[in-house]
C-alpha cells in the first residue's frame, strides 16, 4: 500500500516536472526562469553576475548549468531548454551559429595559460622551458580540448616540446593533479589559478600570448525569454559585468 502511494507520488512528481519543461511560464511578464549554459571555467565568475542580474530584475530566476563547452553545445543541439549559452570554445559556438541554433555570438572574455605548481613550487619551475625537463611530471590538457590546443600553440611558439605524463580531459583535471601533488607542474588557465587560491602557485610566462582563448556568449535560438536573454548577454558585456569577470582573472575580449 505504501509502495503504491509512493509510486503515485513519484508519477505526480515526474508529470509535474515534465509539465514544467514543456510549457515554461512564457508571457508572464516579470516571472521567469532564465536558464544559462556556461563553460565550467566560468563557475566562480558567473555566480555574482547572475545574482546582480536577479537583483536588477525582480521575479527573474537565473539558473546556471556548468559543463564543458562541448557537452553544452551537444545539449543545445539536442534541444536542451537553454536561454543563453556562454562558451569557452569559439569554433564550437561558431558551428552552432552556422546551424542557426544560437543568435549573434559576441566575445565577452579571454583567458590565457599559466603554469600551476604545488604551493611553494617544490620543483623550482620558472619558465615554460623548465617543463621540458624529463625528470618532472608535467600534466597538460589533451590536444582535442581547447586548453590542450592552446598548450600545443604555446609549445610551438616557445619552441619547447613537453612530454607530459598525462593529457587530461579538462583543465580542472589538470589542476586537480597539481593540487593533489601528483604532478610537479601543469598548464591551466589564469582563472583556474585564481580560483584555486592557496592550493597552487601560478607562474605566468610570455609565450602564453600565443594562445588567447576567447569566450563567446549568445542567446539560444527559440528561447521563450529571448528579450530577457538578450538583456543578460548585455549585462555580461557591460562595464559592471566586465569588472566582475576581470576580478576572477578573465581578460577583456
Amino acid at each position: 500500500m505504501r509502495a503504491r502511494r509512493a509510486g503515485v507520488a513519484g508519477a505526480v512528481v515526474v508529470m509535474t516536472a515534465l509539465a514544467g519543461c514543456g510549457s515554461p511560464a512564457a508571457g508572464d511578464g516579470d516571472e521567469a526562469t532564465l536558464t544559462v549554459f556556461a563553460a565550467a571555467s566560468l563557475r566562480e565568475a558567473f555566480e555574482p553576475v547572475a545574482a546582480d542580474f536577479e537583483a536588477a530584475h525582480p521575479g527573474v530566476d537565473v539558473r546556471v548549468s556548468y559543463a564543458g563547452s562541448s557537452s553544452l553545445a551537444a545539449q543545445v543541439r539536442e534541444g536542451a531548454p537553454a536561454d543563453v549559452l556562454a562558451s569557452a570554445n569559439r569554433p564550437v559556438m561558431d558551428a552552432l551559429a552556422a546551424d542557426d541554433l544560437v543568435t549573434a555570438p559576441r566575445d565577452f572574455a579571454t583567458n590565457t595559460l599559466e603554469i600551476a605548481v604545488p604551493p611553494g613550487n617544490p620543483a623550482g619551475v620558472t619558465t615554460l622551458a623548465d617543463l621540458a625537463d624529463p625528470a618532472l611530471d608535467v600534466v597538460v590538457c589533451a590536444p582535442a580540448v581547447p586548453c590542450g590546443s592552446a598548450t600545443t600553440a604555446v609549445e610551438a611558439d616557445a619552441g619547447v616540446e613537453l612530454s607530459p605524463v598525462s593529457e587530461e580531459q579538462s583543465v580542472t583535471d589538470v589542476l586537480a593533479k597539481v593540487v593533489a601533488g601528483e604532478a610537479d607542474a601543469g598548464l591551466v588557465y589564469v582563472t583556474d589559478v585564481t580560483a584555486a587560491g592557496d592550493d597552487v602557485d601560478g607562474i605566468a610566462f610570455d609565450e602564453s600570448a600565443a594562445a588567447v582563448n576567447t569566450y563567446p556568449i549568445a542567446t539560444v535560438a527559440g528561447s521563450p525569454h529571448a528579450a530577457l536573454a538578450d538583456e543578460l548577454v548585455a549585462a555580461v558585456l557591460d562595464d559592471a559585468g566586465q569588472a566582475t569577470l576581470a576580478s576572477y582573472g578573465f581578460g577583456a575580449p
Binding site: A142, A144, Q169
Partner: peptide, 25 residues
C-alpha cells in the same frame, strides 16, 4: 581511471577515456 591514473595514449587512456575525449572534437 580518469581521476587516479590520468589519460595518456597507450599508457592510461583506455577505450572509455578515448570515447570521452573524442566526443570533444
Amino acid at each position: 581511471t580518469i581521476t587516479f591514473a590520468g589519460s595518456l595514449q597507450g599508457t592510461t587512456r583506455t577505450l572509455p577515456l578515448e570515447i570521452y575525449l573524442q566526443r570533444e572534437t
